Computed example of a mutant assay.
Amino acid sequence: MRTVGIVGTGVIGACVAFALARRGVRVHCVERARPGGLTTDVSFSRLSAYQQPTYPRFELSHTGMIEHVRFARQFDNAPWWFPTGSLAWSDAGGAGGAGTDESFAQVVDRLTSWGYRALWCDAARVNREWEPRIAFPHDQGPIVRFPDEGWIDGPKLVSALIANAQRSGALTLWNSAVEDIEVDGDRVVALRLASRDRIEVDAVVNAAGPEAVTVAAKLGAPMLGAVASRSSLVIDLAADGDPVRHVLRGAEAHVRSAGRGRVRVRSDQVDAVLPADHRPEPGDEIVKDLLERAHRTVPALASAVVERIRLGTAVFPADGFPSVGALPGVSGYYEAFANSGITLAPFIGRTLATQIVTGEVHPLLTRCSPDRLRATS
């Protein structure tokens, strides 16, 4: 495989590009916006396997977390990687999470039975030893610390990987949308761009995130409704100092650092009632709701200043597994899009690059073939 075009340069596309460049492949990345500046930049970007309901999905996410450790060690420093650990607690009803009948304790017990590290402690200890600024519902309430979780600065990761591959001379970045994927017989041969450029390639990777369905349709390979979407309201705050050290999965809001003096917040409850196609503005009731939930979780945030309010939308296979690999019947066409893209990106990058170059499919990706999204039954 000599030349590969990658459509989309979010975190997954960048990881695939980096891994291919490391294997000596010539890579053309096509991105209509700043690399890492769309879905990747709006993501809460937590490293976690917490919300995976079945062991196969958990195993894939847990492997992705472990891959981040290996991945970071390839560099002299990895300023995008923050293995802070996380803290989680339930509301008074003990709900395990949106869309589940499990209690919080049952969720944690299931995870620990699968080998996920978790430490039970009470709220008073957390306030005393780790996070003095969190306002828990009860001093003796049960809190779980997940020491292997953390968060990723997605745009910083993307920027580092693209720059690394460009310095090696293996990567060219095209600032354009894709107009068409050219096929000769049953083989991909070129990308045609909205800029009227034509790039001859031996293979194409569709890593276009929310636009992956549209890109697949250009090939004549529609996904027949086998995908789901999820929107999330995310607010970045400028705060004094560093109000939180861990990633917080609170009963009302999720909170994490976003770099020194900055905090990012979201909420499952808020996302569950987001109006379709809503464009949030300061002063909106739904924005005020999220901020109030964040303030109740970490009262020090009441004095923080709102920096950015954004709505991110993720598109992913409805069965919860990523779409990664070759599409049978079209030589040279590959897909790489997923839920939990931040967690899975380095693993997808390494294993898909291996598949493109050698044909070897990683065992954990056997459930992830793109052809399942084209089934008619």
Rank of each mutant, 00 (worst) to 15 (best):
D284E: 10
R264D: 06
A304G: 11
A276G: 06
R260Q: 12
S303P: 02
A272R: 10
G283Q: 04
G261H: 01
V263F: 00
R296P: 07
R266Q: 12
G261D: 03
P280G: 05
P299V: 09
G261L: 04
L301C: 05
R260D: 11
H295P: 01
A304S: 15
S267W: 10
A300L: 11
V298W: 00
P275F: 06
V287N: 03
Q269P: 03
G283T: 08
V287M: 04
P282M: 05
A302H: 05
V273F: 01
A276N: 06
R293A: 10
H278L: 15
D289C: 04
R279I: 11
R266P: 00
R266E: 13
E281K: 15
L291Y: 09
E281M: 13
E281C: 12
A258L: 10
D284N: 12
T297R: 08
S267H: 11
S303E: 13
S267Q: 11
K288I: 09
R296D: 13
D271I: 10
G261Y: 01
P280Q: 01
A300S: 13
E292H: 14
Q269H: 14
R266L: 14
R279Q: 14
Q269L: 15
R260M: 07
L274S: 04
V298K: 01
K288A: 14
R293W: 02
E285C: 06
G283A: 06
S267V: 12
S303I: 02
R266G: 09
G259W: 00
P282A: 09
R262N: 04
S303D: 13
P299C: 07
Q269R: 15
R264N: 08
R264P: 08
A304T: 09
E285L: 12
H295C: 06
Q269M: 11
E292M: 13
G283R: 02
A276T: 13
L290R: 03
P282N: 08
V263Y: 00
I286G: 03
R264W: 05
A302Y: 00
E281G: 11
R264A: 13
R262D: 01
A258I: 01
D271F: 08
A304H: 09
L291G: 10
A276Q: 10
A302N: 04
S303C: 04
V263N: 00
H295L: 02
L301Q: 02
R293D: 03
P280W: 00
V298T: 05
P282Q: 05
R279F: 07
A294G: 12
E292F: 11
V287Q: 03
P275E: 05
V298I: 14
R264C: 11
L291W: 08
L274E: 02
H295I: 12
V265T: 09
P282I: 07
T297D: 02
D284H: 13
P275Y: 04
S303G: 07
A294W: 05
